[in-house]
Design a protein around this nucleic acid. Sequence first.
DNA 1: ACAATGTCTATAATAATAGTAGACATATAA
DNA 2: TTATATGTCTACTATTATTATAGACATTGT
Lengths: 147, 147
Amino acid sequence: MKISTRGRYATRAMLDLALHYGKTPILLKDISTRQAISLRYLEQIISPLVAAKIVVSTRGPRGGVMLARPPRKIKLSEVIQVLEGPISPVECVENPGICTRASSCVARDVWTDLARAMYGVLESTTLQDLAERQEKKRAGRELQYNI
Amino acid sequence: MKISTRGRYATRAMLDLALHYGKTPILLKDISTRQAISLRYLEQIISPLVAAKIVVSTRGPRGGVMLARPPRKIKLSEVIQVLEGPISPVECVENPGICTRASSCVARDVWTDLARAMYGVLESTTLQDLAERQEKKRAGRELQYNI
DNA sequence: ACAATGTCTATAATAATAGTAGACATATAA
DNA sequence: TTATATGTCTACTATTATTATAGACATTGT
C-alpha cells in the first residue's frame, strides 16, 4: 500500500515551490538539484500539475515554474490525486460498478473507511503547512548548532 | 496507493472464516469457491497467515483451516500487515535509515500522519466487526425481499 | 493403502514503476 | 534576427511487482 515516487517527488517539488513562493519563476533544473530528482523525470511529474493548473510555467530564458495559487490554497490531496489518481486503497470504492459484489461487500465498507481516513489527512494539509513545518525544523536545527 | 489482491483476498478469506468460526475446519476449496479466488492463489495467501499463527490448519481428510483465535481478537491490521507488509505509504516512515534526508524531511512527517490514520482504521476493525456488518447487511436484504 | 487434504518451490505472463532520450516549441536578450 | 535558455511532448526501455499457474510433496483420517 505504497505511494509511488511520482507522488512523493511531486510533494517534495511542490514544497520546494512553496518555499520560493512569490518570487521569480523557479528552474526545474534547480528543483531537480535540490530535491535530487532527475530533471527528465521531474519534467514528467510537473507536467500534469501544470495541466491541472496547480502550477504555472513560462518557457524561455528567465522562465521556470511557480505555484498557481498561494501555498495555503493548495491542499496536498490535490497534488497527490493528480499524480496518483483517486485516494483510495481499492478501485471499487470510487467505482462500485467494477465489482458485482460491491453492494453487499463488507470489505469494501472498510476500504471506504480507510479511504476517508487517508483523504482526511491529505485534505487538511496544505503546502503552507508543509512550508511552516520545514521552517520550524530549520530553526530548530540552527538553535541546536548554537548551543 | 492501492492495496494488492493479496491483502484484499486475505480480508475476504478471513471474513469467510470468521463467519464459520467455532465449527469444523473449512476447506480452502470452499473458500475458493465462495470468494471466487483461485485455489492455488488462495493457498499462497493463507500460508503466511498460518505462519503468523492467525490461522491454524490441519491436513488430511476432514482437514482444512480455521481462525486461531475468536474473530473479535483478530484485528484487520494484523491480517493486512502479514500480506502487505508495514501499513505505511512510504518505507522511510518505519525505516528512516533508508533515506539520508529522513530526519529533516517534512514530507516524511506527512507520510507518518497518513500511516497513523490508516493504521487507526485497520487497528480498530476486527473480524468480528466485519462479520457483524455482513450479518446486518444480509438481514437488511432479506427484509427488503419480504416487503 | 489410499484418498483427501494442506505445503513448498518454481515458473511465467502481464502490468506498473521509474526512469532515459530525442526532437520540438517558445520566449528573452544581444 | 539569431542564439540560447528554458519548458513540452512522445517514445522507448530496464527493472520490479503483481497475479497468478503448476508440479511434486507431506500429512492424516478411514
